[in-house]
């Protein structure tokens, strides 16, 4: 038992150490959400802001402006936009979603590192070790999830510079949601990667999965204004609950569907994680170098 714990720690140590020495990986993981934040956030941020609407050209019928003060129209529009995004401006809405998405994308990167290890042999080293394979793969999943959570934290800290609508006290709780989600998706990524020997095959599957999951999670737009069929997918998407939880604890955004609240979201994330981490553990148990 103590040896299994040692193996678990060894693998966590290995994943963290590898991450710490590969600066390019850290940067590339953080650059992507930053680009989304800058281009989508600033781009749409001004669209969804009442201050920038040219009222005179929109309402050229002077009878309306005669009776209603344009500043009232502005204030109504402003309230409307804040309501849509659950009480915050668009950039805050996006950034809080991006915090979750950073860890989500990172989760699949660890699947790539499994394939990498397959090709460069380190996987064999873990396969011939007498330590329990379940703990070996669990150590790996936990290690990568810690990394993903730290990367999300970096995004959140950057967000503090961009928007003042984030509550710093909510950060630790938000990170718990992110860590849970990352464990689950890393488990899924690892399970898939054990079945693939080529980077290309894995990448294809991952792209097919990540894009829809990302758009159907409410990262970019609220889930409660989605068309009904999209809502169905969003409810089945584990990422939705992480985005919801993160946003709730960071910015108090309550945009949700039916039964969603901070507690049910966390429970659902935990269930999801338990299922996929277990699947990953059992599929690694059965792994030979034939696949």
């Amino acid at each position: 038992m103590s040896r299994d714990l040692d193996a678990l720690i060894a693998l966590i140590y290995r994943q963290l150490k590898r991450w710490a020495v590969s600066r390019s990986r850290i940067i590339s993981i953080i650059i992507q959400p930053l680009l989304w934040i800058i281009f989508l956030g600033l781009g749409f941020g001004t669209v969804f802001s009442a201050q920038n609407i040219e009222l005179s050209s929109t309402i050229n019928n002077s009878t309306i402006t005669k009776y209603i003060d344009p500043s009232i129209i502005r204030s109504i529009l402003s309230k409307y936009f804040t309501a849509i995004f659950g009480g915050v401006d668009y950039i805050t809405f996006l950034i809080t979603g991006m915090a979750a998405m950073t860890a989500f994308i990172g989760s699949f990167i660890s699947g790539i590192s499994v394939i990498w290890d397959k090709q460069f042999g380190f996987l064999k080293e873990t396969l011939v070790a007498p330590a329990s394979r379940k703990t070996i793969i669990l150590g790996r999943i936990i290690g990568d999830s810690i990394i993903n959570t730290v990367q999300s934290l970096i995004i959140i800290l950057l967000a503090l510079l961009i928007t003042h609508q984030i509550n710093p006290l909510g950060i630790p709780i938000a990170l718990l949601y992110i860590f849970m989600m990352s464990l689950g998706f890393t488990g899924l990524g690892v399970t898939i990667s054990l079945k693939f020997s080529s980077m290309e095959g894995f990448q294809m599957i991952v792209n097919l999965l990540t894009m829809p999951l990302m758009f159907m999670s409410g990262v970019f737009y609220p889930i409660n204004t989605m068309p009904d069929w999209m809502k169905v997918i969003a409810i089945m998407n584990p990422l939705t609950y992480c985005v919801y939880g993160t946003r709730y604890w960071l910015a108090g955004v309550k945009a949700s569907l039916g039964f969603m609240n901070p507690v049910t979201s966390l429970i659902i994330l935990m269930l999801f994680t338990a299922i996929f981490a277990t699947i990953a553990m059992f599929s690694f148990e059965k792994t030979t170098i034939e696949d």
């Binding site: 042999g121 380190f122 011939v128 330590a131």
Partner: peptide
Amino acid sequence: IGIVFQDPSLDNQLTAYDNMYIHGKLYG
């Protein structure tokens, strides 16, 4: 058993010491 594979099975990103250390941990 101890085995040296035909293809390298080291972690290139880590130091020699860390490769040994992780191996030792895996073997208790």
